[in-house]
């Protein structure tokens, strides 16, 4: 296996990584490279293999075949060299509930060999940074969900890793804490830390430099959020109407309406027509004539949710052993 000359600039170089659990192939021959300093998002439905992929990269799960280089070191053969440079946050809370916030931080600092004289300063800075200073004497099990996640992140950061693997870090966390959490990640990004994060939330994926969509153990698509949205064939029109349930069958009759999604009390339709307002006019007229009160019909930006909803069915999920008809994975 020859190393690419620019390997030094890659944070992550995944080569044909595969993991099978008995009959199930959780991660199926994933090849992916991620430059240093990027916030890389991994999205996909439950059971797509996101956690297994992350766990292999974090040296927690052994690959069945393939390898991955983290800063040029193999997770299979040189796990000892990979570990000191990475931090990993699993999906479930993975700290000691009966230890206090501070004890948890100190424990992981000792375990990961943080120099003694730096320990206190680092712990205090991280507590400050995650807003946990006043809770430092509280047992971790009595923290709220959002605080637990921030503590877990702080514990992963105590050894100042160059690469962070985060597996759905904000699942089950309130919106305010989620925003807070991403503010912290943005800060880490500015410090040059590479972040590899799996998330089920499209608004979170939108904050990443690049995203990959994973399904059935494979990376189906990889692009920037903007690039993903650009791939959507057609544009999105948002419709606010008195009874959106009644409006749906009416809109479906139009040939250029490719899909309709309910978003709150509004409808978002993907339409295949010119951006000249003609379609909007026709939709408004049709809804009004059906006895519905139309509040507005206006073009709106595509979001990732829409992008994946429309792109994923159109990207043929590859046959298991048919590599020639493989997925479109743009570099």
């Amino acid at each position: 296996m020859t190393e690419a000359p620019h390997t030094g600039e890659l944070a992550l170089d995944i080569r044909g990584l595969t993991r099978r659990f008995r009959e199930v192939t959780a991660v199926d021959d994933v090849t992916l490279t991620i430059p240093r300093g990027e916030v890389f998002g991994l999205v996909g439905p439950d059971g797509a293999g996101k956690s297994s992929l992350i766990r292999m990269l974090a040296t927690v799960l052994a690959p069945t075949s393939g390898d991955a280089l983290v800063f040029g070191r193999s997770v299979v053969k040189e796990a000892h060299a990979v570990k000191p440079r990475i931090g990993y946050m699993s999906q479930a809370f993975s700290l000691y509930g009966d230890l206090t916030v501070r004890e948890n931080l100190d424990f992981f600092a000792e375990l990961r060999g943080v120099p003694r004289r730096e320990m206190a300063a680092r712990a205090e800075r991280l507590l400050e940074f995650s807003g946990l200073t006043e809770f430092q004497k509280r047992q971790a099990q009595f923290l709220s969900g959002g605080m637990k996640q921030k503590l877990a992140l702080a514990a992963t950061l105590i050894s100042e890793p160059d690469m962070l693997f985060l597996d759905e870090p904000t699942t089950g966390v309130d919106p305010v804490s989620r925003r807070e959490f991403w503010r912290i990640i943005a800060g880490l990004h500015r410090q040059g830390i590479t972040v590899f994060v799996a998330t089920p939330y499209m608004d979170e994926a939108d904050r990443c430099n690049e995203i990959a969509f994973m399904a059935q153990g494979r990376i189906i698509l990889r692009d920037t959020p903007t690039g993903m949205k650009k791939r959507v064939p057609g544009r999105v029109v948002e419709i606010a109407v008195s009874d959106y349930r009644a409006a749906m069958p009416v809109l479906k009759r139009l040939s250029y309406v490719r899909s309709i999604e309910v978003s709150g009390e509004m409808l978002r339709t993907l339409v295949d027509c010119e951006d000249d307002g003609a379609c909007e006019g026709e939709m408004r007229a049709l809804l009004s004539s059906s006895g519905l009160v139309v509040e507005h019909v206006r073009p709106t930006a595509t979001d990732l949710e829409m992008a994946f909803a429309t792109l994923i069915p159109s990207v043929d999920l590859p046959e298991r052993d048919d590599r020639a008809a493989g997925p479109e994975v743009p570099e």
Partner: peptide, 13 residues
Amino acid sequence: EQGTYEQLVVSPI
């Protein structure tokens, strides 16, 4: 069962 072993594994111990 607590999931903490993964954190131990990631540590150089």
